[in-house]
Amino acid sequence: MSVAELDELIHQPLRLKIMAALHAQGAEPLEFARLKAIIQATDGNLGSHLTTLEKAGYVEIAKDFVGKKPRTRVAMTPAGRKAFRRHVEYLREVVEGVGGE
Rank of each mutant, 00 (worst) to 15 (best):
L6V: 06
T77K: 03
I38N: 04
H11K: 07
G47M: 04
L16E: 09
P29I: 00
I18Q: 00
T42A: 13
K36E: 10
A62W: 11
R92G: 06
A21P: 02
N45G: 08
H49E: 06
E31W: 04
A21Y: 02
M1A: 07
A41F: 02
R81C: 03
E93Q: 13
V94Y: 08
E60C: 00
E60P: 00
Q40P: 03
T42V: 07
K55D: 13
A37F: 11
Y58Q: 00
T77R: 02
G97S: 06
E8H: 05
H23I: 00
P78Q: 04
E8C: 05
R34L: 13
D7K: 01
A37S: 14
R73I: 02
L35K: 00
G47D: 06
L91N: 01
Y58V: 02
M76A: 08
K82W: 11
A33E: 15
K69Q: 09
V66I: 13
V94R: 13
L50D: 04
E8T: 12
A37Y: 09
A75N: 06
E31L: 09
A56L: 11
K55G: 02
L6I: 14
H87L: 00
A75L: 08
G26W: 08
P29M: 01
I10Y: 02
P13D: 04
H49D: 06
T52L: 11
V88A: 13
V95G: 07
L50M: 07
G99W: 10
A27N: 15
A4K: 05
K55N: 06
H11W: 03
E54P: 05
I61T: 08
L9N: 04
V88Y: 08
G57N: 06
L9Y: 09
I38E: 12
Q12V: 14
F32L: 12
E8V: 12
S2D: 08
R86S: 14
H11L: 03
V3C: 07
L30E: 04
N45R: 14
S48W: 08
R15N: 01
A79T: 15
A62Y: 15
Q12K: 14
R92P: 00
R85M: 08
I10A: 01
L35Q: 07
R73C: 05
R73K: 11
I38Y: 08
K17H: 11
L6D: 05
S48Y: 15
K68Q: 10
R85E: 15
E5N: 11
R81H: 10
H49A: 00
K68A: 11
F84W: 12
A33G: 13
E8W: 04
G26N: 08
M19Y: 06
L46Q: 00
T51R: 12
R86Q: 14
L6Y: 15
K17R: 15
A33S: 14
L22M: 01
P78M: 03
T72G: 03
V59C: 02
A56Q: 07
R85G: 10
G26Q: 13
R92L: 14
V94E: 07
Q25D: 10
I38V: 14
E60V: 07
L91W: 09
R81T: 03
A62P: 01
A56M: 10
E5L: 07
